[in-house]
């Protein structure tokens, strides 16, 4: 397979000798225009890889912050067509930062798997994370996505034992997303020591980069959990920043984009500090 934007980004991060920042925001939260302006601002603010949530009415693996974000997006009229349009618009200005669409299977299934893959690639999507399609259901979406040239990024979790890990890694590409807690997004704080140990065990079985996520809220946590991993994922904290910036009627304010950009800058800064600290 030719190098994707994801492969190139992780190669560059390795050169730089630092862990990358993967940001998650939801397409259409709090509205299309604000979400697009946030999306376009993310690379300069320090996002190395962008996860863009495809909103779903029933996000079962997500905690309250991302659920609320998803519902705000749907309420503002977000659809799959608009999510792909958003990626297309981003790509007109940026041809290097990878975009991974993240969400649940049903909206893709209803859009039509083949049509979705075709339109996603045309829009400039690089990879997919679809939470409710485990290896047991690979022929539904994972195999067609890989055949079409997209990365399919799988989640490994604390419940993925040694016996199961090879199955989880088998058709994973781009990077492996290690879920740092047994739970939903944005809830419990991960145990740094345990996570590091699990990441090591994953790396013993694959050459793919590993990104750690679920429950990372602060620059300090991001820095701590990046140890031994190629990237950290921050989502709930970002969509919470969006939620807190909205006015009483749930509409975006001038603060919305600035707050988000500020938080991404400080997260990226924390990851760079690690590298300086190690250099000393």
């Amino acid at each position: 397979m030719t190098q994707t934007r994801i492969d190139k980004t992780f190669a560059a991060l390795k050169q730089e000798g630092r862990a990358g920042l993967v940001t998650f925001t939801t397409a259409g939260d709090p509205d299309y225009d604000t979400a697009l302006s946030i999306l376009k601002a993310l690379p300069a603010a320090g996002a190395d890889v962008i996860e863009l949530g495809m909103p779903f009415s029933d996000p079962m693996a997500d905690g309250p912050a991302i659920q609320a974000s998803s519902l705000r997006a749907l309420k503002s009229g977000q659809t799959m067509i608009k999510t792909l349009a958003m990626v297309r618009s981003f790509r007109e200005e940026n041809d290097t930062t990878p975009i991974v669409l993240m969400g649940y299977y049903n909206p893709i299934y209803i859009y039509g798997v083949d049509r979705f893959l075709e339109d996603a690639i045309a829009a400039g999507v690089d990879g997919l994370i679809v939470v409710d399609v485990p290896p047991e259901e690979d022929e539904e979406l994972c195999l067609p996505a890989l055949a079409a040239g997209l990365n399919f990024i799988r989640l490994a979790t604390p419940t993925t034992d040694e016996r199961r890990l090879p199955q989880v890694l088998a058709n994973t590409s781009g990077f492996v997303y290690y879920v740092s807690i047994a739970g939903i997004t944005g809830t419990a704080a991960p145990d740094v020591g345990k996570v590091k140990d699990r990441v090591q065990r994953i790396k013993a079985k694959t050459d793919l980069p590993v990104a750690v996520g679920f429950g990372i809220k602060t620059p300090e946590q991001a820095r701590a959990l990046s140890d031994g991993a190629e990237a950290v994922v921050v989502g709930s904290a970002l969509v919470t920043a969006i939620a807190e910036s909205l006015d009483e009627d749930g509409r975006a304010t001038p603060e919305t984009k600035d707050r988000l950009v500020g938080l991404v800058e400080s997260l990226n800064g924390a990851l760079r500090r690690t590298e300086q600290a190690e250099a000393l």
Binding site: D132, P134, E136, E137, R154, L155, R164, V179
Partner: peptide
């Protein structure tokens, strides 16, 4: 054996639940 009734059924859950 995959939990399918024709097209229907299956195991569309997050990885955390799959081992359970």
């Amino acid at each position: 054996e995959r939990g399918r009734f024709g097209l229907f059924g299956g195991r569309f859950v997050a990885e955390t639940l799959m081992p359970l």
